[in-house]
């Protein structure tokens, strides 16, 4: 276990330092959440007055959705990075060390989670400038959910990347999974506005419950059933993805 933590942290530090040494990448990662707020947020002010809009002001509904989107899309494309690393021989090189297989993927996921949390904090801070007001506990709770989502999608994306080993195959796969999840989960506009058939379809999307939980947390309903269901689903998804990610890593030498 000590070995596993040590190895994970080495892999984490490596991917983190390499990411931070790339200034363009840092700038884009920081700008993204602010662009969403500035260019999409104002539209929502008007929509918030529509009947059927859920409780809370526009920012309280919109920012949780953006956070969930950050968790999903901030991590969904990390698989491209692992294909590049595999191609440059880095993955094989690490697999020949005595390092734990699980650490090789977990260290990378850890980097993605830390970055996503930082982006989340920037997003919330920027939202405060636009008029969002929520207590510190809500911010903390919301970030935990985002971190869980980020971890899940990072594991899945690495698994898919390493299994496919082709950017051309990975891109359509990720898009075909992420887009329906995004649209059906009510991230951008709440599903309470949807017609009945769309709402039923949306009920089948597990990520809808996570978005609902994130919104509940923003209303300071930390121990409500909505929050509990959403967080439980997020944890289950993380565990499944971690299992799948590790399986794919181990399959590399089969």
């Amino acid at each position: 276990m000590r070995r596993y933590i040590h190895d994970s942290l080495v892999v984490f530090r490596r991917s983190m330092v390499i990411s931070l040494q790339n200034p363009v990448w840092v700038l884009v990662s920081l700008m993204q959440p602010i662009l969403y707020l500035a260019l999409f947020g104002p539209l929502l002010q008007a929509v918030a007055k529509t009947p059927g809009f859920p409780p809370g002001d526009a920012w309280q509904v919109f920012v949780p959705g953006l956070l969930v989107q950050l968790g999903i899309f901030g991590a969904a494309f990390v698989g491209f990075g692992i294909i590049a690393e595999w191609r440059s021989g880095v993955i094989d090189r690490m697999m020949v060390t005595p390092a734990s297989r699980t650490a090789l993927i977990t260290g990378r996921v850890l980097r993605d989670v830390v970055i996503i949390c930082l982006q989340g904090i920037i997003l919330i801070a920027a939202a405060f400038l636009f008029g969002l007001r929520i207590p510190l506990a809500a911010i903390f709770g919301a970030l935990i959910v985002v971190a869980l989502l980020g971890a899940a999608f990072a594991y899945l994306s690495y698994a898919a990347g390493l299994a496919l080993k082709s950017e051309d195959a990975l891109a359509p796969l990720l898009n075909s999974i992420a887009l329906p999840i995004l649209l059906l989960s009510g991230i951008l506009l709440p599903m309470t506005l949807a017609p009945r058939w769309l709402r039923i379809l949306s009920d089948l999307d597990p990520f809808k419950y996570i978005v609902d939980a994130e919104r509940a947390i923003f209303r300071s309903e930390y121990w409500s059933q909505t929050t509990e269901i959403g967080v439980a689903i997020a944890i289950v998804i993380v565990l499944l993805s971690a299992w799948l990610g590790n399986l794919v890593f181990r399959q590399q030498t089969k």
């Binding site: 490596r14 440059s88 094989d92 090189r93 020949v96």
Partner: peptide
């Protein structure tokens, strides 16, 4: 794995990483 070294034909280092860092991190995995 502890006793062998392997130099793959596809390389072993990331283009973006600094030489010293890449060596040190690799050593830490041992």
């Amino acid at each position: 794995r502890r006793r062998i070294g392997y130099v793959s034909q596809s390389g072993s280092t990331s283009e973006l990483a600094r030489v010293g860092n890449e060596i040190t991190w690799h050593a830490e995995l041992y």
